[in-house]
């Protein structure tokens, strides 16, 4: 009985509490977004890009506004969602906003964060959309050595711009989940990032 009550309590527990808020080394902060309304409640939310402990990836920390109060609440940390070469001085990381396929558009539609990571070897941009279960990947743009791959999971299209202005389409496959290092296996074979040897 006690075990059932414990499991029920776990099932009802909020996703994250104040005690779960991660401590961040300020020197590992890469970028932030503080104007977007990810959960479509009219109040800005917040997202931080942080260099992962390993240095080869970017973690994102998400805060969403509480319904009613407008107070920001820590929701989750998603690990290794973008590649990185940290702390080399050549890496560039940013968050911007974008949208696609919406008419009319909600605030959440036009507040889709585009996470970008540029290094000497490759670049990857990932467009996300917040859902009840967490972040969903809605698009990706990868490039390496003058070879660019543009995927729109909402439209189920993928295009490759290769050398000498050669463009062709490929099957994007199903939208990958935002799991750690998803880009290694989650992108179509032609779009994967293979660092220079």
């Amino acid at each position: 009985m006690r075990a059932v009550a414990f499991l029920a309590a776990l099932a009802c527990a909020p996703e994250a509490s104040a005690e779960d808020i991660p401590q961040i080394d300020v020197t590992r902060l890469l970028a932030s977004a503080a104007e977007g309304d990810f959960n479509d409640d009219g109040v800005p939310d917040r997202l931080l890009m942080v260099a992962a402990e390993s240095g080869d990836a970017v973690d994102i920390v998400t805060f969403l506004s509480e319904p009613g109060s407008g107070t920001l609440r820590y929701v989750r940390t998603d690990r290794a969602v973008l590649p990185a070469q940290w702390p080399t001085t050549s890496g560039l990381y940013s968050v911007s906003y974008g949208y696609s396929d919406c008419d009319p558009c909600t605030q959440a539609d036009v507040s889709r964060p585009i996470l970008s990571s540029w290094t000497e070897d490759f670049s990857l941009e990932t467009t996300l959309r917040w859902t009840e279960t967490g972040w969903q990947i809605t698009g990706a743009r990868s490039s390496r050595n003058g070879f660019e791959c543009l995927i729109d999971y909402a439209r189920n299209t993928a295009k490759i711009d290769a050398f000498e202005d050669t463009t062709y389409t490929i099957d994007p496959g199903p939208a990958p989940a935002l799991a750690p290092y998803w880009w290694r296996e989650g992108l179509p074979q032609e779009c994967r990032l293979t660092p220079r040897p």
């Binding site: 808020i21 991660p22 401590q23 961040i24 080394d25 300020v26 020197t27 902060l29 890469l30 970028a31 932030s32 503080a34 917040r46 931080l48 890009m49 942080v50 920390v61 805060f63 920001l72 820590y74 001085t89 890496g91 560039l92 990381y93 940013s94 540029w118």
Partner: peptide
């Protein structure tokens, strides 16, 4: 390291493509 709770971070002005934040002029963001 200087560590703070993540919910104290309001904004980050990091390295960008225009190298606008190389304030000490050493060529690095």
């Amino acid at each position: 390291p200087v560590t703070i709770p993540a919910d104290r971070v309001l904004g980050v002005h990091g390295k960008n493509v225009y190298s606008e934040n190389d304030w000490n002029g050493d060529g690095h963001g």
